[in-house]
Amino acid sequence: MTDTPGHLLIVDDNKVNRLLLSRSVELLGHHASVAENGRIAMEMLSNQPFDLLLLDIEMPEMDGFQVLEAIKSNTDLRDLPVIVTSSIEGLGNVVRCIELGAEDYLPKPVNKTLLGARVSSGLEKKRLRDEQKRLLERFATTEVAQDLQESGFAIGGKRANASVLFCDIRGFTTLSENLAPEETIDLLNTFYTLMFEAVTSNGGIVSLMLGDGLMALFGVPQPLPNSAQSAVAAGREMHNMIEILNLERRAEGKSDLKIGIGIATGEVVAGYAGTDDRATYTCIGSTVNLAARLEAETQITGSRILIDQETLELLEGATVLESFAGSRIKGFSDPLDIHAL
Score class of each variant (00 low, 15 high):
Ile57Phe: 01
Ala160Gly: 01
Gly266Leu: 09
Ser46His: 14
Gly317Glu: 14
Glu26Val: 08
Met241Phe: 04
Gly211Ser: 11
Val119Met: 09
Pro5Ser: 12
Met44Arg: 13
Ser227Asp: 13
Glu177Asn: 11
Phe139Glu: 05
Glu131Cys: 05
Asp56Tyr: 06
Val16Asp: 08
Asp277Val: 04
Gly204Lys: 13
Leu290Thr: 07
Met42Ile: 15
Gly266Cys: 01
Met42Phe: 03
Leu54Gly: 00
Phe196Leu: 04
Arg236Leu: 13
Ala296Asp: 10
Phe166Gly: 00
Gly204Met: 15
Glu297Met: 14
Pro109Ser: 10
Leu341Asn: 00
Ala234Tyr: 07
Leu68Asp: 11
Ser327Trp: 03
Lys133Ser: 08
Glu150Phe: 09
Leu294Ser: 10
Arg304Trp: 06
Glu295Arg: 07
Thr174Pro: 00
Thr85Trp: 01
Ala35Gly: 09
Lys254Pro: 07
Gln149Asn: 13
Leu210Tyr: 04
Val67Ile: 11
Leu21Gln: 05
Val199Met: 02
Leu179His: 14
Ser327Cys: 04
Thr174Ile: 05
Val11Met: 09
Ala180Asn: 12
His239Gly: 02
Leu341Ser: 09
Glu143Met: 10
Ala231Ser: 00
Ser323Gln: 13
Met241Arg: 15
Ile71Arg: 09
Leu257Glu: 09
Ala292Tyr: 03
Cys283His: 09
Ile329Asp: 03
Lys254Gln: 12
Asp334Lys: 13
Met215Asp: 04
Thr174Arg: 07
Leu321Asn: 14
Arg138Met: 14
Glu248Gly: 10
Ser73Ala: 15
Asn47Glu: 15
Asp63Pro: 01
Ile155Ser: 01
His239Asp: 06
Gly6Glu: 12
Ser33Ile: 04
Pro181Cys: 13
His31Phe: 06
Arg250Ser: 11
Asp12Pro: 03
Gln229Phe: 02
Leu187Cys: 13
Val206Gly: 06
Gly266His: 12
Asp337Leu: 07
Gly219Phe: 04
Tyr105Gln: 07
Ile83Asn: 01
Ala160Lys: 13
Asn246Ser: 03
Thr287Asn: 08
Pro181Gly: 09
Val67Ser: 09
Glu124Asp: 11
Lys72Leu: 00
Val95Thr: 11
Gly152Ser: 03
Gln132Val: 08
Asp130Tyr: 03
Ile244Phe: 00
Glu252Ala: 15
Ala180Thr: 13
Phe139Met: 04
Glu243Thr: 15
Phe196Gln: 13
Pro109Phe: 09
Lys125Pro: 00
Glu69Phe: 09
Ala180Ser: 06
Asp276Phe: 10
Gly204Leu: 15
Asp337Val: 12
Val320Pro: 00
Leu208His: 14
Ala102Gly: 06
Leu247Arg: 14
Val11Thr: 11
Lys15Cys: 06
Phe172Gln: 05
Val232Ser: 00
Leu294Phe: 00
Ala273Lys: 02
Leu114Arg: 12
